[in-house]
């Protein structure tokens, strides 16, 4: 029983580490035009690093028909975009000052972040 309890505690620790403590490496954008795939519950890439002050364009390619995926919201920028299926969903972001800017679906199941540095 001791081993099972220990495994349980380790599992909890693993959950905490994997979902909360681990910081995934952001995708460095090479141009000011970034393509984001919306499929299977995630944005890909979801952590995007951009240069502060540069205008960027995000092109969302929505492959997931689930209603959760139909709107992307940038709460700090007061922007949103309805995503139609497929490509051609473009949003232009102003030059961002340094900081982190979230983007997510209405229910926050799809989540992403733009890191302006």
């Amino acid at each position: 029983m001791l081993i099972i309890n220990l495994l349980g505690v380790l599992l909890i620790a693993a959950i905490v580490w994997w979902f909360w403590l681990y910081t995934p490496k952001p995708t460095q954008s090479t141009s000011n035009q970034i393509k984001i795939l919306v499929n299977n519950g995630i944005y890909q890439p979801s952590n995007i690093s951009v240069s502060a002050g540069t205008k960027i364009t995000l092109d969302f390619d929505r492959q997931d028909p689930a209603p959760c995926a139909e709107t992307v919201i940038f709460p700090q920028l007061d922007l949103s975009l309805g995503l139609k299926m497929g490509q051609g969903n473009r949003i232009e972001l102003p030059g961002l000052s340094e900081g982190e800017y979230d983007f997510h679906c209405q229910m926050q199941m799809y989540k992403g972040k733009i890191i302006s540095e």
Partner: peptide, 19 residues
């Protein structure tokens, strides 16, 4: 399939959702 794929993709991405 969409639940399992979604769960796996999210897991790889260090996030979790309803899937």
């Amino acid at each position: 399939k969409h639940f399992y794929l979604g769960a796996w993709q999210s897991f790889k991405n260090h996030s979790a959702n309803m899937d």
